[in-house]
Design a protein around this nucleic acid. Structure first.
Lengths: 348, 348
DNA sequence: ATGAAAGCGCTAACAT
DNA sequence: ATGTTAGCGCTTTCAT
């Protein structure tokens, strides 16, 4: 009862069985064999079938230097990221390319990149043709990627850009999204706005805040402030802001999970949504929760994934030499119950 | 401006540079070299570092027959499946094993398995050590898996079992879940129940319905029926059932997406939830929607993934010879707004 | 129409 | 303390 992985039938075995040499088998099975006798061809093929021969892609890869395998470092947690992955996969499906998946699920936004490096090594050692990656932190030393870069292995970034690094990138048009959000709230009649992000270091938060501010700076109608929800005292700070007489009547959060937290906090503090306070998020990824259905912006993550895959193919197999591309998807507003005209139910 | 993938430094190159032989380099870099002169060791290591040497895992795999790579055929769409994937990944992260990912995202529940076979070939050709797979259809000819099976490559099934196939399986305890659901509704006071599934062929639907019926058959209090939502006229059939004088007051759907559809339908037909009709689902995967927060059962998909990964390691690297295991996770009820005492707001 | 042999990057058994 | 050699599965060049 041997259970070791069955000896996979090799060309050598087929050759022995057929009474020909290895090279004969190789040429016939690879259709590089116009010269062979019909009988030989049929016999070899028949034996290969019977022995359930399957080519060894490892050997092929070793010889040609091409694995038809992409290293993919993208989270699978949450709807947004798994949609990106789904988009990548969908594009790969018809191109005979597989995803070698592994991402840092442990240390988000930490500057320590030891795990990341280990994962990159695992991918590189397996000789992936290229890498698609969502940085778990945007502030790593540039050395983070050097290992990939120096080997001339194409690198495509998704969702988040790196500060000091110029590569292909597919992601959200955060500035446009920030603008859309501000315009939505101002359009509803709000005059005092608040943007809640996670600080300057995260490009998506930064970009959305920038778009948000752009609109405010161009209109006299409304004004606004920003708050960093990553700081420990953020909840208290938020409450202080909301106790001011000239408190904001609408909040735009840089992402839905933050918006959900904020919504819970303010509801506990006695505010009604959207009556007293409109709240919106980004990403269309609200979980089932007690709070009203969240106005949000759909970032089209599936499309982002597909675009990243296209960029990958262009670099890896078309050997494109163009300057690094930057392809941004404009997010789409989904107005829902959590935003409305200010004080809809109050005095006015 | 050559852009071809950089020649990765090889041991051969290091040997040349260091003026020693290949085997010297091999032994030193693999720490099988107590005998070597300190000077040689240091020099070789130093040169390897300088040349950014990385071992070629393809070659290693070819020689040893072990790739430390698992073939994973699990969908990434939706919270439930991506949680399974996340669980698998989490378990693999510390075990130096990578996921080669590819699944049939095209043909759900279709008996045609050509795409599936292609994907399996892609995995097999890359010599994965084992396969974790969620069947896209439970009714394939057994030949579907034969290719994996015959090669003695361990196969772990997740989420759905195959009818005629005995392998390791990690999934939901559907019967227990069905019971829990029925007990929840009866406990709330409902006496006429309806189960909405997708027919006999899908094991998860079948199991949940079975558990549901078990409870009904053991009590005189309540009775119930079932409806197959996969049939084209299901919506009409549902409406007919709801127009009967003795109509059900509570519906259990075999999965949340179905529950959402059903909820929309009945709300459009003028029923209120949960006032006129309690509705519940399975899987805790409700999307943002107009309907009330759905009572559901959490199937713990992350745990399912982790268990599958454990089974994988047991078979693949511990060479476990035990009979196929069947590990079921009992789902946990999450009572929410969509279910309540019958006619809470009506006459009674 | 087919065989022989070198080589891909590396390990391991066998020298010296 | 280090070198030589065969071999893993296969492709390809060079014979015959």
């Amino acid at each position: 009862m041997a259970n070791d992985k069955q000896e996979q039938a090799s060309m050598k075995a087929i050759a022995a069985e057929a009474g020909v040499t290895l090279s004969t088998v190789s040429r016939i099975l690879n259709n590089k064999a116009e010269k062979y006798a019909e009988a030989t061809r049929v016999r070899v093929r028949e034996i290969a079938d019977r022995m359930k021969y399957r080519p060894n892609a490892l050997v092929h890869a070793m010889q040609t230097g091409v694995t038809r395998t992409a290293g993919v470092m993208v989270p699978t947690e949450g709807l947004f990221h798994s949609q990106i992955l789904t988009g990548i996969h969908e594009s790969f499906l018809d191109r005979e390319t597989l995803l070698l998946l592994s991402w840092n699920s442990r240390t988000l936004n930490k500057k320590d990149d030891t795990l990341e490096r280990r994962l990159i090594h695992q991918l590189l050692d397996r000789r992936v043709d290229g890498v698609i990656l969502r940085p778990s932190c945007e502030e790593f030393e540039s050395s983070y990627f050097e290992e990939i870069w120096e080997r001339n292995i194409p690198l495509i970034l998704v969702d988040r850009e790196m500060k000091n690094f110029k590569t292909d990138f597919a992601g959200t048009d955060d500035i446009a999204g920030g603008r859309t959000a501000a315009e939505h709230l101002i359009g509803l009649g709000h005059r005092r706005l608040l943007f809640i992000g996670v600080g300057e270091q995260v490009s998506t938060s930064r970009g959305r805040e920038e778009g948000f501010r752009q609109v405010l700076s161009k209109t006299a109608k409304a004004r606004g402030n920003a708050l960093n929800f990553d700081e420990a005292d953020a909840p208290q700070r938020l409450m202080e802001v909301l106790r001011e007489p000239q408190r904001p009547t609408a909040i735009c959060c840089y992402a839905d999970p933050i918006a959900e937290n904020v919504a819970k906090l303010v509801m506990e503090a006695g505010f009604s949504i959207p009556g007293d306070l409109s709240i919106m998020g980004f990403g269309n990824q609200q979980a089932v929760s007690e709070i009203p259905r969240l106005t949000s912006l759909d970032q089209k993550p599936f499309m982002i994934g597909q675009i990243a895959a296209d960029m990958y193919f262009d670099r890896v197999y078309n050997k494109s030499q163009n300057a690094p591309q930057r392809r941004l998807i404009e997010p789409v507003l989904l107005p829902r119950a959590s935003t409305s005209t200010p004080k809809a139910k109050a005095k006015r």
